[in-house]
């Protein structure tokens, strides 16, 4: 684990959490008190035009706070966290958080961060789709995603995995060393 005192301007740290589950979203809804049905009820979320439930934006931002807490350990505390929720995160997605040390000023360490969501779409083998994930079944990937070149591929044991990688939350944070 990286030590807070070892950080330098430009140091990049990467954390991967997930996958997001419906149970996890419900647990967060109860723990935070935000029980809006767009997060907990697929049928309601569909009526709201969302193609199924979405994770709370603050749940995703909370994951950034989680890795900041790890970085701070008992040598620092998170004093600022700010994020813009730009991309919806859904069940099955992974959170990929990349933090970059922007500035170190005395006992304050400033970060820029980008939280991305990785959405599994399908696995192909020899040009044939052998596995479809919920994102493919429910149409969560849009033409816009394709046009913006957000669809990526990687080799996995079963074949070629197609997934979408897009920004969920960009933002800034500050840890104060104690």
């Amino acid at each position: 684990m990286v030590q807070l005192s070892e950080l330098k301007v430009g140091t990049e740290l990467r954390y991967v959490y997930g996958p997001v589950t419906r149970d996890g979203i419900i647990k967060y809804a109860f723990a935070s008190g935000d029980r809006n049905n767009i997060h907990t009820n697929d049928e309601f979320a569909e009526k709201m035009g969302l193609k199924g439930v979405i994770a709370h934006g603050l749940y995703s931002l909370g994951m950034v706070a989680r890795c900041l807490g790890e970085i701070a350990s008992d040598k620092g505390k998170v004093v600022k966290l700010s994020g813009q929720m730009r991309g919806m995160v859904r069940p099955g997605d992974e959170w990929i958080i990349t933090l970059t040390v922007k500035k170190i000023n005395g006992d304050l360490v400033d970060f820029d961060f980008v939280e991305e969501s990785k959405t599994l779409i399908k696995i192909e083998k020899d040009g044939v789709v052998i596995k479809k994930y919920e994102a493919e079944e429910r149409g969560w990937v849009s033409e816009k995603d394709i046009a913006q070149n957000l669809i990526k591929t990687e080799e996995v044991a079963e074949g070629i995995l197609h997934y979408r990688l897009r920004t969920a939350i960009p933002g800034t944070a500050t840890i104060k060393m104690v």
């Binding site: 767009i38 603050l58 004093v79 600022k80 966290l81 700010s82 500050t174 104060k176």
Partner: peptide
Amino acid sequence: LHTAQSYDYT
């Protein structure tokens, strides 16, 4: 929908 949030403890 939530679109942004910040916490400031300074």
